[in-house]
Amino acid sequence: MDVTAVDRSAVSGDTLLHHAAPASKLAATGLLLGAVMAVNDPLVAAGVALSLTGAGAAVGLPLRKMLPLALYPALFALIFAFAAAPGPVTGAVVVLKAVTAALAVVTLMFSTPYPQVFAPIQRVTPQVVGDALLMTYRSLFILAEKFADLTRAVRLRAGLSARQPVRSAQATIRALGGLLLYSLDLSQREYDILYLRGYEGGLRVTTRRSVDHKADTAAVLYAALILAVVLAFRMTPALSGYSWLVTVAGAVDLLTGLSIGRRR
């Protein structure tokens, strides 16, 4: 899970979605999550997932970085589906729900800097929780980079080898121990900074406004359309025989999105 790639794309990306207001993107993500919750047909769920991937490709988001993150929950969902779902159809819905929901949130995170995503969360959580959330995300990138450096250093010194699992495990644990001490030193430094700046609670984030109102409208309308399709299939049993049409439409979206993305 390369979390640093998320931040790089969110901060330095320049796609249509990056131009939309964070509030619009959050609303669109909410609508998409509503669709994920309501969907109960695997063909409809597959169509939504394909369409979302196509939309990401069309606007020029880094799909190669996004898809591994979006597919990561499928592994756990697969185990859960195998263990708990009563049949293959339900199992397929569980896995597709995981992938589609992950695609929705990953699209949000790849196009929106994290303080902007956390700003509305900060407003509804206690101050210490909202501030700690911002501090966590900041520390996460520092620690992820430090851990990568530590494991690279151990690997270069031949400490990590598939032939010597015990030695590799010992080296990894030492790296984790070192990372723990580093993280506590980091918290100490952050405390010193907060102390010097006279922090008394309440790290404020200024909400960014929209650069392109068309992008706002497009994001919300697209998500609303997806939700409407899912609800139509959910509420009208007569449509269940035609759910393959949603998959086909999703595949067309994907191919179109990929073709638009390549032309950029």
Binding site: M135, T136, S139, S183, L184, Y191
Partner: peptide
């Protein structure tokens, strides 16, 4: 946490949460 001093709690929670997240992201 606020009563015991949020200036001390915020960076500590942030660092430890980030550490747990780094561990959880290695599967």
């Amino acid at each position: 946490a606020t009563r015991s001093g949020s200036r001390r709690a915020v960076p500590l929670i942030g660092a430890v949460s980030a550490l747990v997240l780094v561990a959880m992201s290695s599967e």
